[in-house]
Amino acid sequence: MEKISVKVCTGTTCFVMGGANLQELHDLIPRKYGDKVEVSGSPCLGLCSINWEYSKAPYVKVNEAVVNEATVEKVLAEIDKQIGNN
């Protein structure tokens, strides 16, 4: 099974829209999933500027799936969903 990659945007918009609270994923994910999931930050996923009028920051990418208005719970749910699919 391939590792699931989680990328948390640490760009300006995401950070002020609640991305700062997603830092706990860094501790939480390895504890919960061990080696199955790899979590890292991204300087900017570039998603806020695409649809800037309706920005849904903060963004997190779980493999290619984008989690809008991300919270720790939403990110974990997406990971569980993808693990279930595998």
Binding site: T10, A20, L25, V39, S40, G41, S42
Partner: peptide
């Protein structure tokens, strides 16, 4: 470019 969340 690698962003380390732990460096926050």
């Amino acid at each position: 470019v690698k962003s380390h969340m732990s460096l926050s």
